[in-house]
Design a protein around this nucleic acid. Structure first.
Lengths: 111, 111
DNA sequence: ATCACTCATCGTATATTTACGATTTACGAT
DNA sequence: ATCGTAAATCGTAAATATACGATGAGTGAT
């Protein structure tokens, strides 16, 4: 055998694994679960749920993470629709979106 | 300003972010959520929960993924204690661990 | 012992996630 | 306009996750 055969291994790209065939409910649950899949994001959600409606950048002070990192986690939660934020003067106020959290609970119960 | 200042950026290693201070419940919920954070793993859990107690490698046939990939996902679920597998002759039988799923539900409800 | 089969593991390529300094953007106050 | 504060974004380093071919380990049958 030629030892230098290029072989041309065709490797599937990650975003198109084989057929992309997953149930919508599975995709939805996985996306929500993944958004919860980091202790900082769970901590943020708990903070927001506990301390009433919405807290602002005080979140940063209560997490062992730098401000950009927290901002990034907030973005993940926002993109999963688990929280929402509104500008309030110079600050931004975040609050949980209970309907999405409940949606997650429902999907988990239906599992 | 000197344009070639080396600056010597000290970057924190990923496994010791700043203080590693997260609530145990947050860590536990995040770990379980992360294990559910992939549609294939949700699909596997649903399969096991739906089709009675335990199915074996038929899982591979019902997923759009190669066998080693499925095996890897099974390992993730096993390590999260969400499923368990026992050897049955030449095959391996997996089943859901309902107590862990319920634990996840509880943690989510307490959020 | 050999074969066929099932499943786990290894090696590795690629993609994504996580973290943070530096910078930018936006706002209110002066 | 400038300043100070709050938060997002940029750029990037490092870690982790995902996928799969190749290989190994285990079993039952021949």
């Amino acid at each position: 055998m030629s030892p230098s055969a290029p072989v041309a291994r065709t490797r599937r790209t990650r975003s198109a694994p084989r057929a992309a065939a997953f149930r919508p409910a599975d995709l939805e649950l996985a996306a929500l679960a993944r958004a919860l899949g980091h202790p900082a994001r769970v901590a943020i959600l708990r903070m927001l749920a506990t301390s009433g409606e919405c807290i602002c950048g005080g979140i940063v002070d209560r997490l062992p993470l730098a401000q950009p990192t927290v901002s990034q986690h907030l973005k993940v939660l926002k993109e999963a629709d688990l929280i929402q934020g509104e500008v309030e003067g110079p600050r931004v106020c975040y609050c949980v979106k209970p309907e999405t959290v409940n949606r997650l609970r429902t999907l988990l119960n239906e599992l």
